[in-house]
């Protein structure tokens, strides 16, 4: 598909080199991936303006583009017929180097210019590899322990350590595990975003956990001892007499591990749900009735 590079940069076909440069810079300041982290649209547009600039800022490429651009499918034939003698020149050009990897120029560009793209700061540039993004799904119980996982990405196995206490939607960077650099440039980075599934019994808010515990009426009224589940084991709890339905208690240090703070934990908040007895016997109903009268 023909790409109108003038339109991409928003300049006139008669634009001077300076006008092209300044239009490109203006757009680049808006769309540069360093200024738009994790914005795929901006990255795509940035690649488009980069490509447009690659062509329009190079007098030879621009000449060829103006001459054959719309008939790009036949450009090779024209070239073979000796109508195009130009050699690639890098005079006065500058193309950004961010994640410009192979295959990032359009088919249109590749057909017209082959693999001539990307001269960077006037010399052969070392391209940094592309950054990769991936999602990793964990259970809440997985996220509460530091553990290792092996990921397979583009055929490569990567072993990563996931620190306990990682948050849902938190992203960590694994340096050097992105796309391979070109011309000796460094590899890109791998960004992993963690998606932590909800737990059926525990809710998490930061480092604190919340749960509800059913309490039978008799223990709630008279007090006693119960065993409750925490995320990593059972604990015994003393229940005060006359504990109200919906009352909350805090178990200090029984919450979620604090990210990258070994030995530190949040708290576990328990809400008691008092269970009203059902299927009462006649005798029990009598006793409740007596209780009720004694209360009046």
């Amino acid at each position: 598909m023909f790409i109108d590079y003038y339109k991409v940069l928003g300049v006139d076909k008669k634009a001077t080199e300076q006008e092209i440069k300044s239009a490109y810079r203006k757009l680049a300041r808006k769309l540069h991936p360093d200024l738009n982290p994790n914005d795929k649209d901006a990255k795509k547009k940035f690649q488009e303006i980069n490509e447009a600039n690659e062509v329009l800022s190079d007098p030879e490429k621009r000449k060829k583009y103006d001459q054959y651009g719309e008939n790009w499918k036949h450009a090779e034939e024209y070239q073979n017929a000796g109508q195009y003698q130009g050699q690639p020149s890098d005079a006065g050009r500058q193309t950004f180097t961010w994640s410009q990897g192979e295959g990032e120029f359009s088919d249109f560009f590749e057909s017209l210019f082959g693999g001539m793209g990307g001269t960077g700061r006037g010399r052969q540039i070392k391209y940094r590899g592309e950054d990769y993004s991936a999602e990793l799904h964990l259970d809440l119980t997985d996220a509460c322990e530091t553990h290792q996982r092996t990921l397979t990405l583009h055929g490569d196995k990567i072993r990563i350590t996931i620190p306990a206490g990682i948050e849902n939607d938190q992203t960590i960077k694994i340096a050097g595990h992105g796309g391979k650099g070109r011309n000796g440039g460094p590899n890109g980075d791998l960004y992993i975003t963690f998606k932590i599934a909800s737990h059926p019994k525990f809710r998490r808010s930061g480092n604190n956990l919340y749960t509800t515990v059913e309490l039978d009426l008799y223990t709630a009224v008279l007090g006693g001892e119960i065993t409750v589940n925490t995320l990593n084991g059972k604990v015994k709890l003393k229940v005060k007499p006359e504990t109200q339905n919906g009352s909350k208690i805090k178990l200090k240090g029984k919450g979620f591990p604090v990210y990258k703070s070994k030995g530190e934990y949040g708290d576990l908040y328990i809400t008691y749900m008092v269970q009203i007895p059902v299927d009462l016997t006649d005798r029990q109903r009598e006793l409740f009735s007596e209780l009720s009268k004694s209360h009046k």
């Binding site: 982290p37 948050e167 849902n168 939607d169 909800s198 809710r203 808010s205 930061g206």
Partner: peptide, 30 residues
């Protein structure tokens, strides 16, 4: 500014997680 933006994105993620406390599917009573 980018650092502030990153901090805010992190804060938004934390707040979204807290919001989930109130938007859990049925079966959760609190």
């Amino acid at each position: 500014l980018l650092q502030r933006m990153e901090d805010m994105q992190h804060e938004i993620a934390l707040l979204k997680n807290r919001l989930r406390l109130y938007e859990e599917p049925e079966g959760w009573e609190y």
